[in-house]
């Protein structure tokens, strides 16, 4: 008996020990850096405690403007992405058009190319096009619009995939039943298809909203260095202004916003489950 108990105990210990690398990784690459950021945000460049940075950052109007612009760009990108991704995902989920899922691969394919290279190529292409058609460069004249175009292009696959997955799971019988019972296509869409895809829409929205909030390369490249969103502001505080303390505060702000958006997502998905909108 004792033998068995000991063996069980030792096996338990062995299993637990498997999580040690993960635990160490989390401590060194997540927890410690996070504490460093908090520490830097509360000190000045000499390492003395200094709380004025917080006051300075939030009394300067330009910081609020930057945070506001980041929100605007992120929300606009999310909405446009979903509006484009929804019909695409719908077509892709239809087996008639998308045999063997080849078309899905086409939409994922651009993600195999390096992100920066892809964005630069898009910038040159868009500018060339606008130069020929309207005689100005989009990213120079309307850098914010350029940034949104770049973000939509780069994050579209993140919106398509969750929607596509959700639509594959849709119960086709319900759609047919609704049509058989006399609902016109509009009613079928709004009363049957749309409710069934809500979880997909929510996860597509978070998948695009979060990376656009923290994005930096796209705004830098597609905004010609003239667009200030939280990501680029942190970059200029680190590389141009050399104030890692202010950069830390902004990082915490960004973290906070992303945390909030996660909570919001949880809230929505919970509600859906409670109301049992889903059909599985």
């Amino acid at each position: 008996m004792e033998e068995v108990a000991r063996r069980q105990r030792s096996r338990f210990n062995f299993r637990a020990s498997l999580s040690i690398p993960f635990f160490v990784f989390m401590v060194f690459f997540v927890v410690v850096p996070l504490f460093l950021i908090v520490y830097f945000s509360l000190t000045d460049d000499q390492g003395h405690f200094y709380f004025d940075n917080w006051r300075l950052i939030f009394t300067a109007g330009d910081k609020w403007k930057t945070i506001g612009l980041t929100f605007e760009i992120a929300i606009l990108t999310t909405i446009i992405c979903i509006l484009i991704a929804y019909p695409i995902a719908f077509i892709l989920s239809n087996k008639k058009f998308n045999k063997n899922k080849i078309l899905v691969y086409f939409f994922v394919l651009p993600m195999w190319v390096n992100f920066v290279v892809r964005t630069m190529a898009l910038r040159d292409m868009v500018n060339e096009m606008f130069e020929n058609l309207f005689n100005f460069q989009l990213t120079a004249k309307y850098p914010v619009a350029g940034t949104v175009v770049g973000m939509v292009y780069d994050y579209l696959p993140f919106a398509i995939l969750p929607l596509y997955n959700q639509m594959l799971k849709m119960d086709k019988n319900q759609i047919e039943a609704a049509a058989d019972l006399g609902a016109n296509p509009f009613i079928v869409f709004f009363k049957v298809i749309l409710p069934m895809t809500v979880p997909g829409i929510i996860s597509a929205a978070t998948m695009t909203f979060m990376p656009t909030m923290s994005s930096y390369v796209v705004a830098e490249q597609m905004g010609n260095g003239k667009v200030s969103i939280i990501g680029t502001l942190i970059e200029s505080y680190v590389n141009t202004i050399h104030d890692k303390n202010a950069a830390s505060i902004l990082s915490l702000v960004m973290l906070f916003i992303i945390g909030i958006s996660l909570v919001v997502e949880k809230f929505f998905t919970k509600k859906d489950e409670d109301r049992k909108v889903g059909i599985w």
């Binding site: 300067a60 612009l69 003239k226 200030s228 200029s236 202004i241 104030d243």
Partner: peptide, 15 residues
């Protein structure tokens, strides 16, 4: 004045 110029630069970039 480094810090003040830095704040000015952040203002220029966000304008």
């Amino acid at each position: 004045q480094q810090k003040e110029v830095g704040e000015m630069w952040a203002r220029v970039k966000s304008a």
